[in-house]
Amino acid sequence: MKNLQDTIREIAAQSLARGEVELVIGWEKGDLWWQSYPAFIEEEKEADRLIWDPLCVPNLSRYLLQELSEMDEKKIALFVKGCDALAFNQLLQDNRTVRERVVLYGIPCDGLVDPSKLEREGLDRDLQEVERDGEELVLKAAAGEEKRVPAKDYLYDKCLTCRYPNPVAYDQMLGETVPVEPEERFTGVRKLEELDYEDRFSYWAEQFSRCIRCFACRNVCPACSCIKCVFDLQEPRWLGKATEPSENAFYHIIRAYHVAGRCVDCGECSRVCPVDIPLQELNRKIILDINELYGEYDAGVDPEQEAPLITYKTDDPAAFTES
């Protein structure tokens, strides 16, 4: 049986050769074992740069924003994991991508490796390559040594709670679908809700105090696809430039609010935060409330479904003292 990586390379080469697409977006290896980066392949002979390994976490859908606007009317092939497909659908719902111009190759994903979990246990020493073999990870060191560890212990937390590992949108699915066995995703939110208001505030004040306003959370987010962000406006000046606590809180609250009903819960915001603010919990709190008050809704699953915050029912419940 061919492995997935070979299939990916083959498909990329073929579709470029046949002129079906002008660009293929996939992943390629960086210099270090944990670096699986977006790759932009325009020529058939470059297709062998493409890889698939358990570190291919970057969401490729967002790169369409740039590429589609540059390549007027040209077609692009894109490899999508479950979360990437949700992201793609969200971009579609936001009119930020064009379905006809994108060929989606779906990759069922059984979870990706969180390098920090390996580092924490010192498993990154001399590491050169990580492979997935069923329920195990194969850690290959420089000297050809191999070590096997249970995969589940080293996957991203967000992957453990993933509800859509199999892409919901694709033109062609590559590989077998994987079983869907998510852990409860609202545990973190519920834990925070056990705190009283003072402690909740202190918790978030401490988290936000670390924010350096690098905007990585915004830049990676498939729901933050505005051409010009409201926070970058000079006039009106919604948000001060200082990393003052209230400004930081303002930024994170409004950012979460802006993706309310549109967040696909891919968890990329938390992953890319250089100061480890658990941003996904903010989004999940809003998802939980929307589900509770206005009915279950999974952003990105069906781009035709109306997002919960742009519609209403006349008998909607309210969360005010007066209902």
Partner: peptide, 13 residues
């Protein structure tokens, strides 16, 4: 128009 992203959620509401 320079700020509009074209998401058109305004149409829905």
């Amino acid at each position: 128009e320079s700020l509009c992203t074209g998401c058109l959620m305004c149409i829905d509401v």
